[in-house]
Every structure is written in C-alpha cells, then in structure tokens.
C-alpha cells in the first residue's frame, strides 16, 4: 500500500556525508538470546533510512539501542560523536538529540496535548513556558491539528495521537528522529495522515530511521532500505535496487510476503 503517492519524493541522496550515527560491531543479548549480531551501520546527516524485516528480527532493539532505551553488550555506538554508554551524562546528551516515536504513541494521558508538547522543553531544556507553548503550537500547526491543543490524548483518534507524538518529539528540536512502526497500530484510513507528516519531515532534511512495513513510504522517502533478519543486517540498498533487484533470497521472500505477491 502506498499512502504517499500524492507526495513528491524528496531528493534522493546519501545525505551530507557527516556521520550522525556510527554503529560498529554492535551485539546485544537478552539473557542467552542474541537479539543483535554484529551490526555495522553508519547514518549520515539528512539520511532517511527505512528498516524492515520479519517480526522478532531485532529492528526495535536496534533503534532502541540508539537512544539508550536498551543497553548493549558489545561493539560501539556513537550518536553525533557522543558514545552511547552507561555514562548518564552521555545518555542525557544523546537523548536530547534523538527523538523517538513509538508504535503505541505513548502520549501522557493525564496531560493535555499542549502539556504533552511543552513538558520536556520546560523541564529538560529549561525553556520558559510561554516560549515552549509557542513552539508547541507551531508544531501542532505543522502536524495539522492546532485545534486539538487543549484536549486530552484519550479524546483524539489514533492518527491524531501519533501526530501529536511526532510533534512532541519535534518540540525538543532533535537532530535525529527514530520511528518504531509508527503506523502499525493505526486503522488504515489514518495511516496516510501520519506518513504524510513524516514525509514532510524528511523533505525538510531531518535525519530519520524508520522501522516500517509501509513499502510505499520506503520507495518514496527512503534513500536507503535495510533488511534485517535474526539480529543481522542482511541487505541494504537504495530503494530502487532494494525493491526491483533484491540480492538475497530472504529479502525476496520477505518482500513477496509484504507486498502480497
């Protein structure tokens, strides 16, 4: 399903060359189970990377390592030059550069939309409330729900909630945005509004890592598509090659399942 047909594709390119995320030989275990196996990945500024793969292949685990929601046991991970480690200072520094959007939105249900957006800028960035609200209203406008500012998340549709979640991350002015299956919990008619928002973000040059099975979005927006299986990066290529001429058998199998051939 291609929800972004009407959108113009952003200019394809490798980004500006300056590395934003550097992952070397990253391995992670849950107990005895190895969830990530020697991952190597470098993401340059302004790159849009789509990660796909079967369920349980380690996609979430990989992007959750990037903002230290999961610890890893082996290898090296740098975000904008800062090593992601147990060091709390580094973790804070990394998290203030990396925004994350979850499958389940994870909005704060006891706060209004506006308070959801201003909370972190006020408490983490120490920005005055008036200024934080101004920024929040700007981003609500950007995700096209300015009129919902005073509602509670529970009063919004799923698509609206996810756009609020995106706006909440943007209010922190991150350099990198991580998306973990942002449309998987949405009813089909709401997927497009969220993908449109993400497409716009990509056009403006945000560095993005998106775990998704929306292959239409990958084709239009990504400059690189990564296929993961069993904790390893099996294949990565530009979308054109990835979809039309997949190199590995597993990728081909996966694509045929996802694209429904």
């Amino acid at each position: 399903m291609s929800a972004t047909d009407t959108q113009q594709a952003p200019s394809v390119g490798r980004g500006s060359g300056e590395p934003m995320i550097q992952i070397r030989q990253l391995s992670k275990w849950f107990g005895n189970f190895q969830a990530l196996d020697n991952i190597d990945l470098t993401v340059s500024r302004r790159e849009r990377i789509v990660i796909c793969g079967p369920s349980g292949s380690g996609k979430s685990t990989l992007i959750r390592c990037i903002n230290a929601l999961e610890p890893y046991q082996k290898g090296e991970l740098l975000v904008d030059g800062i090593p992601v480690s147990d060091n709390l200072k580094n973790i804070d520094a990394v998290r203030s550069e990396v925004g994350m959007v979850f499958q389940q939105f994870n909005l704060f249900p006891h706060l209004t939309v506006l308070d959801n957006l201003t909370l972190a800028p006020i408490w983490v960035r120490k920005i005055p409330r008036a200024e934080a609200e101004e920024t929040a209203r700007y981003y609500l406008e950007r995700v096209r729900i300015p009129e919902q500012a005073d509602k509670y998340p529970g009063q919004l549709s799923g698509g609206q909630q996810q756009r609020v979640a995106i706006a909440r991350s943007l209010c922190m002015k991150p350099k990198i945005m991580l998306f973990d299956e942002p449309t998987s919990a949405l009813d089909p008619e709401m997927i497009k509004e969220v993908l449109d928002t993400m497409t716009e973000l990509a056009k403006e040059g945000m560095t993005m890592l998106v775990v998704t099975h929306e292959m239409g979005f990958a084709r239009k927006v990504a400059n690189r598509v990564i296929f993961m299986d069993e904790g390893r990066i099996v294949e990565q290529n530009d979308p054109e090659t990835f979809f039309n001429n997949p190199q590995s058998e597993r990728t081909r199998l996966f694509l045929s399942q996802v694209l429904g051939h």
Partner: peptide, 23 residues
C-alpha cells in the same frame, strides 16, 4: 502504568525524578 510511559519519558530526556513526579 504501561512500560511505554517510562520509555516516552526517558526518550524525551526527563531525569528519574522528573519522570516519576511528572509522568
């Protein structure tokens, strides 16, 4: 409280006490 609430607070950079107190 669902785990996602903790993760959202963490990913926004809230400290432990901010997270507990505000979220």
């Amino acid at each position: 409280i669902p785990k996602g609430q903790y993760e959202a607070a963490d990913s926004l950079g809230l400290s432990y006490w901010q997270k507990q107190r505000l979220i």
